[in-house]
């Protein structure tokens, strides 16, 4: 606010600054700052209620925030005069409980936005969807309906549904939390592959193994703020904050 701040040479893909969100009297995001560089994987960790999900939902404009900046390539999406539908179309969101449309086949789920939002023809959309479903290992489940799939398969279909639109930023909200333990691996492996391909990701998770292996930056959220952030070996290996140490100790107990 005081005088012009020199802009970095390469601004981050996503810049969140001073973000504030309350539900009634419950303050969920409290003056939160976070940058996500292009082609990086930022992992959000923290206890339930620390604001991870609300942050992701706010970035995808599914929640209206009280104050702060949500800049995607320099455009502040939190401004109500920005076209929210167009902004959301540039990002991909994957939910904890998959949120596949139960009345549609997997193929119809994945071709819906390309056809309705991105103006693809049926043929283009289906070709891209089939390629993407094969990519996530669901080439043989194209005509299946969500309730015929396992949790891991449903979540991979949901990831394909988000990815097929070529999002600039992929938001993942505890995508393995609803899965049986033996199905977690197949989803995390897929995310690691996407990470290796350079997909920009903002991931809320309780999977510390994934954070250690795939994150460029780990952020520990507490009380609606980023209490500590840094490379995984630092935040997970030698945390500075007592709250972070406490959280990690309880997780491993």
């Amino acid at each position: 606010m005081t005088g012009p701040t020199p802009k970095p040479l390469r601004p981050p893909l996503l810049r969140v600054a001073g973000l504030r969100k309350s539900f009634g009297t419950n303050l969920v995001l409290d003056d939160l700052d976070l940058d996500v560089a292009e082609h990086s994987c930022v992992v959000l960790i923290g206890a339930s209620g620390s604001g991870k999900s609300t942050l992701l939902r706010a970035v995808d404009l599914l929640e209206e925030v009280d104050d702060g900046v949500i800049e995607l390539r320099g455009v502040d999406l939190a401004d109500p005069w920005v076209d929210a539908n167009a902004a959301r179309a540039r990002m991909g969101m994957v939910f904890q409980s998959y949120n596949l449309f139960g009345h549609m086949s997997v193929l119809a789920n994945v071709t819906l936005a390309p056809r309705l939002v991105h103006g693809r023809t049926k043929e283009e959309a289906e070709a891209a969807a089939v390629a993407m479903l094969e990519r996530v290992g669901l080439g043989d489940k194209i005509t299946a309906y969500p309730d015929q799939l396992s949790g891991g398969q449903q979540q991979r279909a949901a990831i394909a549904r988000a990815l097929v639109n070529g999002p600039e930023l992929l938001l993942l909200d505890e995508v393995t939390s609803a899965l049986d333990p033996e199905l977690v691996g197949e989803v995390l492996d897929l995310l690691a592959e996407l990470r290796a391909e350079g997909t920009t990701m903002l991931v809320a998770t309780h999977e510390m193994g994934f954070a250690r292996q795939a994150a460029d930056l780990v952020c520990f959220l507490d009380g609606g703020r980023v209490l500590e952030s840094g490379p995984p070996e630092q935040v997970l290996g030698a945390p500075e904050q007592p709250r972070t140490r406490e959280f990690l100790a309880r997780l491993h107990a």
């Binding site: 001073g18 504030r20 303050l27 409290d30 003056d31 009280d66 104050d67 702060g68 900046v69 502040d76 939190a78 401004d79 109500p80 005069w81």
Partner: peptide, 18 residues
């Protein structure tokens, strides 16, 4: 910090727009 929130100019402009 949480109790006494003063909306930023930005937040006020958004509220006015809404």
């Amino acid at each position: 910090m949480s109790g006494q929130w003063t909306p930023s100019q930005r937040a006020l402009a958004r509220a006015a727009y809404r």
